[in-house]
Design a protein around this nucleic acid. Sequence first.
DNA 1: TGTCCTCCTGTAAACGATATCATTATATAT
DNA 2: ATATATAATGATATCGTTTACAGGAGGACA
Lengths: 334, 334
Amino acid sequence: MKKTSIKDIAEIAKVSTATVSRVLNNSPLVDEFTKERVIKVIQQLNYKPSLIARSLIKGKTHLLTLIVPPTPNFFSAFYFTQIMNGISDALTQYEYRLMIYQPHGYDAKLGYPPQLEEFQMDGLFMIAPLMEDRLVKHCETEKIPTILINARSHILDWIDLNNQTASIKVIETLVGLGHKKIAFIPGLMGYNTVARLEGYKEALQKHSIRFDSSFIEGGDYSLESGARAAKKLLALPKKITAIYAANDLMAIGAIQAIREAGLSVPGDISVFGFDDSDAARFSQPPLSTVKQPFYNMGKRAVQLLVERVEKPEMPPRYEEMEGEVILRQSTKKI
Amino acid sequence: MKKTSIKDIAEIAKVSTATVSRVLNNSPLVDEFTKERVIKVIQQLNYKPSLIARSLIKGKTHLLTLIVPPTPNFFSAFYFTQIMNGISDALTQYEYRLMIYQPHGYDAKLGYPPQLEEFQMDGLFMIAPLMEDRLVKHCETEKIPTILINARSHILDWIDLNNQTASIKVIETLVGLGHKKIAFIPGLMGYNTVARLEGYKEALQKHSIRFDSSFIEGGDYSLESGARAAKKLLALPKKITAIYAANDLMAIGAIQAIREAGLSVPGDISVFGFDDSDAARFSQPPLSTVKQPFYNMGKRAVQLLVERVEKPEMPPRYEEMEGEVILRQSTKKI
DNA sequence: TGTCCTCCTGTAAACGATATCATTATATAT
DNA sequence: ATATATAATGATATCGTTTACAGGAGGACA
């Protein structure tokens, strides 16, 4: 009992397979009467054309692949899921399907994962690849239709947060609350960290606050690294009144360190995070943070990628989205 | 400049396409010498066989699809991501690839999403479908290789938490801490809620504590519903000393309600959650809860599904996994 | 009546692999 | 020398579609 194919339909409807195919693709050059007859047979047999066969001859699979970083500590679930939901929802408008690929030995010697090349997919979403990612390089040189989400490139399309203005908003919020001695805990060096630091400096300058490099203490996006950094910052001779961390987890680590030092949040020190993760909502006190429009980034990424797939020669397109400051109880006026 | 195909290889290596195919599938009936020659050409041209073409003739796509519920409020990101990570990691051992499908109008009239049928995938993962899910019914009657994760069926394979023993562990932990008046906030009625309630009753009986139906106050897995339920429970004439909620979010809602009533957690009332979500870790106080082995469920699901795909006629297999009690600061001895 | 269009339909060749069967070359047995 | 087995290879059909091309039917027009 094999699947019914276009041949079966043709036979029963007493037409050629070509005609059935024309009906399927509702070509105008088929008689109304025969069209109706064919459709009836199709419905009776509950026939569904094979996308595999169609892909083979058309040379397009209508498959897009989402490359997921191998969940390092800084890559949290909510981040990914929101983007995926955005992609998934937007895809319902298009005739494309979504595959997931999560490289395992990411930094291993292997360059481009063979599985991807073999399965001719039409385009790639890449979430937050690192700057030196080999896969990105490969896509750039091979001109594989790709859209970077939360990363940048001169050759590929991308969507990213405007990290600089987001940072500026944070600092202006803190300055507005009366803070002047504001420390920053950047994450691993990457596109966004650089831009956030830039924004931090710019906002300070705008408000005539002198930049003090001892107020910068890096982390690796983990909770522990946030705690470590905060500990050092608290030991500084000049007393800080606020800490701005490059993600929520480090901010929460900072809160822990501040408590351990016998100080309170936001009583003694205000803390700002970044990302608006679950952790921010449920931390104690709830964390002021920056919300990235992940869902919309995913949605928009679909549009850009599909257009790229259909017009591979278009010049690359870039899009910056704005972050939104979410004020909760970890920050206070002084 | 089209993709290089098996024909090109054959031509350059001066063999037939059949031989190239044999080399690709390392058949033993090909001379060592020609094999070497063919391989060299393959590498030179960086040829990768088309999985599409292979799928067409083999009748197998080597594509598995993960059906994701349309993120209702009770379906949180960490839940899904952990399962997906498990699946994704396990898949590296097999020659299968992963697709994602997230139905949108889930409860709408449409039964089986056409996109799935058209793209012949070999098997389906379904996460926590509801009992009356039409897609599940479809898979059951059409004998589509499917594994349910966190759900059950008489016909399909499944992996689920042993909800009853998990519940028993929770109650025994609370009883061990001296609690006797323990309320339960179940979630929406489904497989797991029923079993958890069963376990709750069984554990009470075992410790000769009379079951009191007024101690049961249902919610819908949302934070607000947890708060509402707790409020009612606190208003009971008989004073409870502990609340066990069927998920973390409702537990956190309960904590908020308890605070609003002027009581403290765990000072006056101990609270237990379920799932070990991020929210549990970062709530204040950190929430005692039950950790479900999501990652391992995903991993194991791959094994079961692949075996099912390869032997469709096997009798269905079921697997129960055990939950682990995570003790944090929301529970206290009395 | 013959020519040219238009409209519809069918035939057959793709797409890129695998699988079946046939064929050749070589080795071994008689 | 002939028959037979074995190893390596090639020719060709096949999977389920789409598509270029070729026709046939019928009408319009000279």
